[in-house]
Design a protein around this nucleic acid. Structure first.
Length: 109
DNA sequence: TCGCCGTGGCGTCATGCGCC
DNA sequence: GGCGCATGACGCCACGGCGA
């Protein structure tokens, strides 16, 4: 479509410091994985390094996801190219077969 | 013009897998 | 086992096309 990556990038890339859609859906997801706070300690802040660890992990995963999507698109493009090539080959072979059949028919007659 | 729908891209989470 | 990476799944958002 006409939507470029850059356009959406400007919209979504600033989400690191804000509440993301996923966090709105599941507020506890702002905690590091595996860290659970019960209601009695809801005001307790996670340790600073845990926060940094989480941010680093999210950043790496964000980039990994981008790369993964890029590779997937590339893979699909390759497959589409291959399909196009094979379709052309198929057409060519069908035409070649038709010609050979014609030649054979003329010889037999 | 407006609302709806399809599409594409993004961030995040969960999970499987290989490596140490 | 623990860790990091790759990727599927999910939900959200922006955009374009289309019919009313």
């Amino acid at each position: 479509m006409a939507v470029t990556g850059d356009e959406t990038e400007t919209v979504s890339s600033g989400s690191t410091g804000d509440l993301t859609a996923c966090q709105l859906r599941n507020p506890s997801s702002s905690l590091p994985q595996g860290v659970v706070f019960d209601n009695a300690h809801i005001t307790q802040k996670p340790p600073e390094d845990a926060v940094q660890k989480r941010e680093l992990r999210l950043m790496k995963n964000r980039e990994a996801a981008r790369e993964c999507r890029r590779k997937k698109k590339e893979y699909v493009r390759c497959l589409e190219n291959r399909v196009a090539v094979l379709e052309n080959q198929n057409k060519t072979l069908i035409e070649e077969l038709r010609v050979l059949k014609d030649i054979y028919r003329v010889k037999v007659e």
